[in-house]
Nucleic acid binder design. Structure first.
Lengths: 135, 135
DNA sequence: TCCTGTGTATGCATACACTCATACAATATG
DNA sequence: CATATTGTATGAGTGTATGCATACACAGGA
């Protein structure tokens, strides 16, 4: 019952010039990957986020919208928003396509931040290996 | 003499929702932090950047302007733009921290979308290598 | 049924980001 | 001095991001 509140408390909007909806999108994706939000979890309400961060409802919706298009959320009218099941089946070519998509997004993000893709690749490999062990 | 050209070749603008001037700002800051741009170096001309990236002169100026306000650049009318003396914050270690942050965020996103981190790493490496060649 | 909490959808207003075009001002060079 | 180069500046026009307000549509419970 406290999950949403805890997530809410972690959200931060910074005046860096990066659009608010982008900041929200990244923070939620990260919370999911870190396990602070898991499949089936109810997300904080759009209105909750809007009020808590003193941000417009449409802005939050913009973020939730993109997360749904990414397949990370399920938006259910009248009920709420929920973290989607990460398709574990995602086999064969479908998996390759998704992987490719994300890989390109990542390179774009790295370029946008001026981070060397090769250095980034190495770092990811190391962290991924660490995660393998701990699980 | 090749410095500007080399820096120019590393610049990338991606449609991530992050404003172009922010992308430029970050990339230059990181080039400084990584030592690819050091005190006294002449920056590529605003017009060079504008033409190379097919972006408006005012947009580039916006980025250079912020960098000057940050103390990272000295803009000299009629002569050019130069990296300031104490190339500000974001030194080597800070750069590593940023890379680390992005790496973790990527792993988070991958987990959230049900994508295998190792497969992702390989794909990124391939795409990054391709990009290196084409430039 | 009625009420409340959701997501969904408008319209209006403001500010910002970006492009395009056109200059002006200072510096360097011939 | 003339010219080119570079930074500086402005205005028009378009699209987006954000905020504020007001609804509508659907689900669940009293």
């Amino acid at each position: 019952m406290h999950t949403q509140d805890q997530i809410l408390a972690t959200l931060r909007i910074e005046p860096t010039g990066v659009p608010i909806y982008v900041q929200l999108r990244e923070q939620f994706l990260r919370a999911m990957g870190a396990g602070r939000l898991t499949s089936g979890d109810q997300m904080p309400t759009m209105r909750q986020v809007a009020v808590a961060l003193r941000v417009d409802l449409n802005t939050v919706r913009h973020a939730y919208d993109e997360l749904e298009r990414l397949g990370a959320l399920r938006l259910v009218r009248g009920r709420g928003s929920f973290v989607a099941e990460p398709p574990p089946a995602l086999q064969g070519s479908a998996h390759e396509i998704e992987t490719d998509k994300l890989a390109r997004q990542i390179l774009a993000a790295a370029a946008a931040l001026g981070i060397d893709p090769l250095a980034l690749t190495k770092r990811i490999a190391v962290l991924a290996a660490d995660q393998e062990k701990s699980s």
